[in-house]
Design a protein around this nucleic acid. Structure first.
Lengths: 275, 275
DNA sequence: TATAATAATGACCAATCAGTCATTTGTCAA
DNA sequence: TTGACAAATGACTGATTGGTCATTATTATA
């Protein structure tokens, strides 16, 4: 397993530099000091590697942002949101570089769907933030607002990613917080209607439950601690055939919430049960 | 020459669908109904083809936008700007698709520089628009404003490009006009300072004059009309060794301004002489 | 019609790629 | 020390790529 991590780290460096397609498996293995065969013991294919990388990064970002949005008071929410988004980009600038280089690239169908999936999660988080901050006042323009926020997010990403310029993150977050507030409180002409937004969501919803089950089983096999393990097993049964009350589910979620390896599955389940 | 255009059109279709790297020369020639050798009679390499495509498209967009910005009164400027930008995307959606797919891709060094060049031209046009509309009132936030406008431009591009959703362009332009005005008249926290902006400009300025000369010579060889041809020759001499007064230069530019094949060189020279 | 010039062909080349698998190396317990 | 098992190797495969060039077809000229 440690070999897998080594490959991921070294491959990430190369991908960030040259892009995914332009980096050969040979190069990766040389950069790791291992043989080509060894690579294929850890990953079934080159595609599986990039998927693992993107999963790792996006899971991190989404859970981080979700936590920020949940734990921050209204007054500081926008600021913290932008700050932590850009901090993530900064911290994982190699990931960000790969993501931007390969964004909407031809690549794999599976990868495009995966990116769309994480994008959707992020959109939901942003929408929940808008709901909390401005509530009914922005119903008509809330999707426009969401797209504006996404734009602002991408706006300065090039700064960290393609130039290595020292950036005052606090000032940036302040500036974008002001812009967002200005638009939220003054904009009146909506463009993205509910219908338009939904037209842009060719999402396969059914995939989600399967995906949660997969992750659950993985974690059940992985985790040793008895309480957490049993909680996961019960949550799996509940997912297959609901029998417990919401209170019990919530309690079980509470059991795993703080386990470092359960952050992602915890997020997925909270989202699924809308708690 | 007509063969060249055929190849460009057919290749564009394939690039839009599959991306540049994923499309082989073989595929292109098959799609054109010509042989592989014939391809290399029109283009020295596959790279030269994509460069020709991007040149054609970007020259079109930049001259269009420049004309709009010059010819529209202040009241309608922002609206017309957004409207025509999105109309370009819509009209040349295959181009736009390729551009987005290949954006900041590894590709060729030359291509990256070329993209950066056109990007810079666009930024200059936007800045001149901001200057005209808001003048001294937005000096501190003008670069932030410019980046915001660029963000808004990209924001909904996916709509035309990846989904083929019918879009109310007028409403979109209205919506973005309002947002831009809101930010211009109310934003106070600048993030992109003059210094930061310049740090993001690793442009080779010297390339420009050479490039203008190249284009000039090309057009001189191409154009038949005596007045236009002589004007171009004189403008070339002036570029190599300035002898005429600004009035004469301006007159010469006026001579070529309306020739359909001189739009681009006319734009380049006007920009160079800042008239 | 004969000749020269130009346009077009597609078999071919060298390079590169992801992925495989017979073989070797290393690591245990017996 | 032996033998069984797993980990690691890298030469090899088959497919694909961008690009070339000797050959052939077409057109223009005389």
């Amino acid at each position: 397993m440690i070999k897998k991590q080594l490959i991921m780290e070294k491959a990430l460096e190369l991908f960030a530099e040259q892009g995914f397609e332009a980096t050969s498996v040979q190069q990766i293995t040389e950069h790791c000091g291992i043989s080509k065969g060894a690579f294929y013991l850890s990953f079934k294919s080159k595609d599986e590697l990039i998927i693992a990388l993107i999963d790792q990064f996006m899971m991190q970002v989404v859970t981080d942002i979700d936590r920020i949005v949940r734990d921050t008071c209204d007054e500081q929410l926008l600021y913290e949101f932008y700050y932590s988004i850009y901090q993530s980009f900064h911290k994982h600038s190699d990931f960000a570089k790969v993501l931007m280089k390969e964004h909407s690239q031809t690549l794999n169908k599976e990868l495009i769907q995966k990116m769309r999936y994480y994008d959707k999660l992020l959109e939901d988080i942003i929408l929940s933030m808008i709901e909390r901050l401005y509530g009914g006042r922005v119903q008509e323009i809330k999707y426009d607002l969401m797209y504006s926020i996404k734009s602002f997010m991408n706006m300065y990403s090039h700064l960290f990613v393609f130039y290595s310029i020292p950036v005052d993150l606090k000032l940036l977050a302040n500036s974008l917080e002001e812009k967002t507030n200005l638009l939220a409180t003054n904009a009146t002409v909506p463009f993205v209607s509910v219908e338009l937004h939904h037209m842009m969501q060719p999402m396969n919803e059914e995939i989600t439950k399967e995906q949660i089950l997969d992750t659950l089983e993985q974690k059940i096999a992985e985790i040793e601690e008895p309480i957490e393990k049993e909680s996961l097993i019960l949550l799996k049964q509940q997912l297959i055939e609901p029998t417990f009350s919401l209170a019990i589910v919530k309690g079980l979620l509470e059991n795993i919430r703080n386990h470092p390896h359960c952050k992602w599955i915890s997020y997925l389940l909270r989202r699924y049960y809308k708690v």
